[in-house]
Design a protein around this nucleic acid. Sequence first.
DNA 1: GAATTAATTGAACGTTTGTTTTATTAATTG
DNA 2: CAATTAATAAAACAAACGTTCAATTAATTC
Lengths: 214, 214
Amino acid sequence: MARTAGSDGERTEAAIRDAAVELIARYGFEAVTMRQLAAEVGVQAAALYRYFPTKEDLLRTLMKEHMEALLAAWEAARPANDDPVARLTAFVSNHIRFHVERRHATHVSNMELRSLSRDNLTAILKLRAAYEKELRSILRDGAEAGVLEVDDTGLTAMAIIQMITGVIVWFRPDERLSVDEVTATYLAMTMRLTGARTKTEERHVRQGAELRAR
Amino acid sequence: MARTAGSDGERTEAAIRDAAVELIARYGFEAVTMRQLAAEVGVQAAALYRYFPTKEDLLRTLMKEHMEALLAAWEAARPANDDPVARLTAFVSNHIRFHVERRHATHVSNMELRSLSRDNLTAILKLRAAYEKELRSILRDGAEAGVLEVDDTGLTAMAIIQMITGVIVWFRPDERLSVDEVTATYLAMTMRLTGARTKTEERHVRQGAELRAR
DNA sequence: GAATTAATTGAACGTTTGTTTTATTAATTG
DNA sequence: CAATTAATAAAACAAACGTTCAATTAATTC
């Protein structure tokens, strides 16, 4: 046999990506074989090589597009407003929603970094660093404006990211909590963690400090 | 050749474990081959099977002992005192110290769960659940005593564990911060996150509430 | 409707994998 | 010092791996 009736390159490539994300998330990149992936797509292993030159390149593509989508989602969600607390709220909300909606892809991007070659790894880490920098800048601005209490910007950024990314480890849709409820709880924790003050509170604190300074 | 001069079963087994933890942490369980591991130990692959019946059993052993050591470390660190804030402090401190000291083993235990068969996975998850239950009980007691502000015990426990386990992702000894400094920062974040109050603060809050109630 | 291009199969390639078996030597015991 | 046990090497196993290649058919173009 050869070309099958109704076969379509675009559809096949999309099916490969989808199946790859799910299989790799479940079994790990090294454990998934090209034949297993092909079977899931309903195709022979050789057909995969029409779309991805190597197994690693398939992984690289999945990760790169996931990270770029994450950055794009943040670009779209970032508030025009430059209030650090509002930006922090948007960051956490966007992060949780994005990750919950793409649990499998996130799993792949977070767990399979070591299966990348040096160059590919560097490229992915660069994207990741750009994303984390966004959070650090929010925390720094907030601390300078006196609306956030942040001892160490770098550590706090890592702590928050670990905390809010961790949602995907236990969260399952259609269970006890909705995405909105989870987001609300994590937002509350983030705000307490960073000692976030509303503008009113912040004014009171400033006035108190001025009084004591006399 | 056969038995080598100075060979000793106990030493070889220990060497296998140590090498396995490092290699698996770095390359992932599936990516590490028995021959690679044997070479690291300085032995032929067949010799590994004198100590571990299969590759998976080696992984299972490493994970089981790591989790048991974690539970044992907490048993030893748990304060006699039953003040929730003190217990939370001890939990976080112990967790960070333990994980930083055993970065590689923690990596293995957290990342390679999917390489276990059903039965082995169940056994490891049971140990993990027992550990997490300790934190939930601290949070619940603290909330009931009014010294902690916890919206959702389960979510908060997960958030804290993700946050403090995440230290191993970026922490490198001999860098900017010592273990004690990192622990202090994370403790501060944990206390803010849980709205921890000292006993004095808690008394004030209670008195305020009583006043308002009149 | 012939020529061309796109999509896929089926078979094969050389490696590498986890594991087993057998033989051999070192250390220990009686 | 002979017998036994402990620890390993060396070679072999079938199975599975990522990947390549040639052949074949479906769809598209001219």
